[in-house]
């Protein structure tokens, strides 16, 4: 049953996300072209030889951030829309009257949404790759640096945060469609809960980024090698922070792998609690108008 549900959830949401992916890659092409032209101008007319690598305040990174952020935000909005429409819109009359438990329905939606997050991560990476290829002044070796170190951290980090963020998001949406003591929550309550969600998420994203990336570094390479000084991309995907590339010593010095594990566990706990709370609401407090 679960796989059947997931199949239909994918089909239902695919259109939104393919559109998003297409636009995102198209933007990447444009960005690469613009950057290439800009760098060309700088080298030819402003006499600057230096290639535009991942320098902290490079125009390129700023521009890339600007484009990646909407992609992330759009992803959140698409996921929220998918959940809301399929559960509380007209299709909700179908989703909530199927001979399948609400828990299974919820699990299907969480899983499918998570899969789309992975898809959007891939899109984001493709965007970076595309801009690198288009803009002729970026060194390919440093691109591989990006792949080796930052990419893995980027993927794993974003995935784990998404794992907590998706149930949280669904909880907020479900809450705004629930009934307590005969009163239907909506509007202001939903807005408030939304801020709460954003706050929790922002905290998690920030904390995890600080703590998590070193753990990945430690897992992949030995401390003290030259890699230590290179790019560590922290690009939490779902909206709040983008691309801060750090070259040089990590400002936070050494790290403790146990704290990293703690924050991962905390994130997963939040995910489980949010999912359970949502399930409980779906079973007992739903009110489909």
């Amino acid at each position: 049953m679960l796989f059947k549900l997931m199949k239909y959830d994918f089909v239902y949401s695919a259109r939104l996300f393919f559109a998003l992916g297409t636009i995102a890659i198209a933007l990447a092409f444009i960005l690469g072209g613009v950057d290439g032209l800009y760098q060309g101008y700088r080298i030819m007319f402003a006499g600057q030889e230096q290639s535009i690598i991942f320098t902290p305040n490079s125009t390129f990174m700023q521009m890339l951030s600007i484009v990646l952020i909407p992609v992330g935000v759009a992803a959140i909005i698409h996921i929220a829309q998918f959940y809301h429409k399929s559960m509380f819109g007209k299709a909700g009359h179908l989703a909530m009257t199927m001979p399948v438990s609400r828990g299974t329905v919820l699990l299907s939606k969480i899983t499918v949404s998570f899969a789309w997050v992975l898809y959007v991560i891939a899109v984001a990476m493709a965007m970076v790759a595309v801009t690198h290829i288009i803009s002729p002044y970026l060194s390919l070796t440093l691109f591989f640096t990006f792949i080796d170190i930052g990419t893995i951290a980027f993927i794993v980090h974003t995935a784990i945060v998404a794992l907590a963020a998706i149930p949280l998001l669904f909880f907020c949406i479900t809450l705004s469609n629930s009934v307590f003591i005969g009163v239907r929550l909506n509007g202001i309550i939903a807005g408030f809960i939304g801020f709460l969600y954003a706050g929790i998420y922002a905290y998690l994203a920030d904390r995890l980024t600080m703590r998590f990336t070193p753990a990945i570094d430690a897992m992949i390479m030995n401390p003290g090698t030259i890699w230590e000084q290179h790019t560590i991309v922290r690009v939490p995907l779902m909206g709040l922070q983008y691309g801060r590339i750090v070259i040089g010593q990590r400002p936070w010095g050494g790290h403790d792998v146990y704290i990293d594990i703690f924050f991962i566990a905390l994130t997963l706990a939040i995910a489980a609690i949010a999912a359970a709370a949502t399930h409980s609401l779906l079973k007992k407090r739903v009110s489909l108008q």
Partner: peptide
Amino acid sequence: PIANSRISYLPDVAHIPTW
């Protein structure tokens, strides 16, 4: 869900996605 497996429901809205 168990009761729903025995009921065939036609709501007053278009519940099957129209696309």
